[in-house]
Design a binder for these strands. Sequence first.
DNA 1: TTGATTGCAAATGCTTTGCAGCCGC
DNA 2: GCGGCTGCAAAGCATTTGCAATCAA
Lengths: 163, 163
Amino acid sequence: MEGHTAGSYARGMADQVVEADLDEALRSRGYRVTAPRRAVWEALELAEGHLTVEEVHRATATVGYDVDLASVYRTLSLYEQLGLARASRLGDSDANHWELAHPDEHFHLLCAVCGDVDHHVGSLVASIRAHLDEGHGFAVDDVELTVTGRCARCRGTGTERSG
Amino acid sequence: MEGHTAGSYARGMADQVVEADLDEALRSRGYRVTAPRRAVWEALELAEGHLTVEEVHRATATVGYDVDLASVYRTLSLYEQLGLARASRLGDSDANHWELAHPDEHFHLLCAVCGDVDHHVGSLVASIRAHLDEGHGFAVDDVELTVTGRCARCRGTGTERSG
DNA sequence: TTGATTGCAAATGCTTTGCAGCCGC
DNA sequence: GCGGCTGCAAAGCATTTGCAATCAA
């Protein structure tokens, strides 16, 4: 199951350092550091996987500051704009799923059976960039790659969906 | 601009053949062939690029049968389920964009400046499949890859958005 | 102080659904 | 004729926005 898959990429740095990064990232661009913004940040940090906006909203309450849903939306958009967070559509859901941005290029492996989302870090995204940039004159800004299928645990169980 | 990019992948087959494919695809699975379903199909066929549901709706009127918006949604979902059509989120829009499914693995190149969407057909998707399937025990069902950046015409114009 | 930011509530926009009538098979 | 399919209208849900009060700098 491990391989190149990184399930806990965000860990490994002391939380204070990341906290400081938030302050710096906001202030250096002229944005204010506020309690709601800290709470959203902490909610994303604590989360193991991807959170919907609703889940972030609920999570902020558990970290001590119940941020209004509209403000969660505004804050997440700001973080995306600043390159601090990232949204992706996963599964059948209409809702976006959010996670902290991480430095390495990565993509999502979505298991259609158990619903798990794994992060896959590797050279694939980089090679996509290189291929397009050098060979086709396309200047790549962003690569969004989601692979759906059956994970190692679930393969062999057929094509049935969870339910 | 050309390269491996296929802007008119759907052309090249006689339309009657594709028409017959629709009838066959529906009837063989127990679904009925109706005027609305034909109209949605024709709308997708005539379209050069990707259409929003609203655009498909408008297009059905021009091919002679004004299909209700709700029915367009239902029909497109059916086509997706049957593997006849494919939806993707493109750009900032909340709305899905639809296109006829095509046999070759492909992905989308979205230009952030001019908004153009090009289809890129190549071995990349296949190599992604192979990499995950053989190396990581993940049985790949579907690869969704969208690359955002600046196309050959627009690169050099900076990072400004259209508008 | 001062204007960015928030909470609240209403609005927006895409998509889904209930239901009665219609039409392909 | 039967049952799937459609149109219509209303509902559902994620997301955005207007505005007055609040709070970081």
